[in-house]
Design a protein around this nucleic acid. Structure first.
Lengths: 327, 327
DNA sequence: TTGTACGCGTTATCAT
DNA sequence: ATGATAACGCGTACAA
């Protein structure tokens, strides 16, 4: 393995000078710098992160905790994180936390190895709450989900307002019987979107109906089908439904069409997230889009400032209502 | 930061003994081991990877190069990789290579940092060919895609045979006019699936028709729509089509239905990969499923053997034809 | 069975 | 502007 000492020998300088060149230190004569760089070239020198890290306790590597790789929602966020990281000469690595508490320990170990300069966490807030204090000692920011009332910087949209917008849109279309399909109210986003749904109804002077609220415990599309079947079986079925996830919305559409009804004529459906499938599915989904890439970019910027010792405040980004055919 | 020397002091032993305990070395008296472990506990000691790596030039971390995070095809492979890695006390990290040759340099840098014990590469073979020799000096295996005629162990299905099976199924259903929608024949899988298509036709004594072969250059569903529109506009349109990717197949179905025709009655469609969307879409897709999780598990096993200094031979796993409604 | 002492490759301090 | 050298935390050869 070729080390700084080898480069130094070839360039006819000391290891200190090589190190200075390596780190762009200004106090190196131009001619010397060139000689050193030539030597690095010819020897094909590569810095050894382990050694550097041992010395500086910095690796210029950051870790993102991704709850679920199969969920395309995260893909674009990860792109944003990566782009922003590379821009500042950091390398982004990913870890699939798999939504399972069993993996929690493994992840904790990873974090405890004194290896990453910082962490972007996208896990649901229940999981985040479990993360031990010691681990949190490293620079840490949350993206998308976050623990309310905690001093951890995060970036997110205003889920409550977004949900309200979705329902206001249905109201504007003339709907008065609007149902909610929610996933699992242990998630923060689920609580907030439910609140937004209520806000809109209240603002329209409508009474909330318990039988119009379906909490199905997850976001897989069969759960959406189940919810829709229940809603359609009511004496007075809703004419529109707001689902807190696109997958749930698509399930709802499938069940509606399977029952011989039409979307959006018999039941208008609005989803949330604008996953790729939303535009592919027939009828294409009206949904709330999150600025996923920007979410990632901002989260990384927050993290880099944390690493630099600052304590930046959280940011909230704007959502969009994407109107397609389903409502 | 608490180091071995601290543990040693508290336990009343030398750093060497602490190290031995840490690495499960047998020659430590039970009582001593317990004392050391207690000390580690009370001090909340965590090994510093950087230091260990510097000493051993091992990190027990492996890297997977993922061409495209947004493609759910890789999610399950990654799960397999991760499970298998953890089973052997390795940690899996991921890097989004983003299918772009611009990123190639960055990735090369990551690999060159002497940091990972090995690499699982899922990039298309054109990209793999560009990876420089020096980088390949680390333990390296390919998963899914691979460079033919190279001595790099890989795991994959037999794409050619799988494609042949798909087309044989259509033939068995009585179809004689069968088209092919291919993506980009620079990809190995695309070449192989095209060959399989030909194999089946030849075996059935059918002539290959140039106008039945649509090469669209990618796998996004609008490309599938385009191809289907072209096929349906022919004087003698096909009655069935084999698309080399589910997304293409879905595009084809959309275009078919948009033209007022029915799937599978007017055009039967078979896809490839069995992505999640395949079972959600209406009509649900008949497709070839790859054993994705096993692909990942086997790839990691190959890699770990490479790391151990062996040179295992490649493995081919079995595919399955999943019959649903589209054909 | 346990301890002493050195070196892995790098950066930073203090000289010069 | 550059050089000598001491750490950083760990594993291991060699000694005891």
């Amino acid at each position: 393995m070729v080390a700084v000492v080898d480069v130094a020998r070839v360039a006819g300088v000391s290891t200190a000078t090589v190190s200075r060149v390596l780190n762009g230190h200004p106090s190196v004569r131009e001619e010397t710098r060139q000689r050193v760089e030539a030597a690095m070239q010819s020897l094909n020198y590569r810095v050894t992160v382990a050694a550097r890290s041992l010395r500086t306790s910095r690796t210029r590597m950051v870790l993102a905790l991704v709850p679920d790789f199969a969920n395309p929602y995260y893909a674009e966020i990860v792109r944003g994180l990566g782009a922003s990281a590379r821009e500042h000469d950091y390398e982004l690595l990913l870890c699939d936390t798999g939504l399972s508490e069993a993996r929690e320990r493994t992840v904790a170990q990873m974090l405890n190895r004194h290896f990453y300069d910082g962490v972007v966490c996208m896990d649901p807030y229940t999981t985040q709450q479990m993360v031990s204090e010691e681990v949190r000692s490293l620079p840490w920011v949350a993206c998308s989900e976050f623990v309310p009332d905690e001093q951890i910087p995060h970036v997110s949209i205003d889920h409550r307002l977004a949900a309200k917008d979705a329902v206001l849109y249905l109201l504007a279309k003339g709907h008065r019987r609007i149902a909610l399909i929610n996933s699992d109210e242990r998630y923060l986003y689920a609580q907030q979107r439910r609140d937004g749904y209520r806000d809109a109804l209240r603002e329209a002077g409508l009474q909330e109906r318990a039988d119009y609220i379906q909490i199905v415990g997850g976001i897989d599309h069969p759960l959406g089908e189940l919810a829709a079947r229940r809603l359609l079986a009511l004496d007075q079925p809703p004419t529109a439904v707001f689902a807190v996830a696109d997958t749930l919305a698509i399930g709802a559409i499938k069940a509606t069409m399977a029952s011989g009804r039409q979307v959006p004529d018999d039941l208008a459906v609005v989803g949330f997230d604008d996953v790729p499938l939303a535009s592919i599915f027939e009828p294409a989904l009206t949904t709330i889009a999150q600025p996923r890439r920007e979410l990632g970019e901002h989260a990384m910027q927050l993290l880099l400032r944390r690493i630099a010792g600052e304590m930046p405040s959280s940011v909230t980004l704007a959502h969009t209502l994407v109107v397609r055919r389903s409502a």
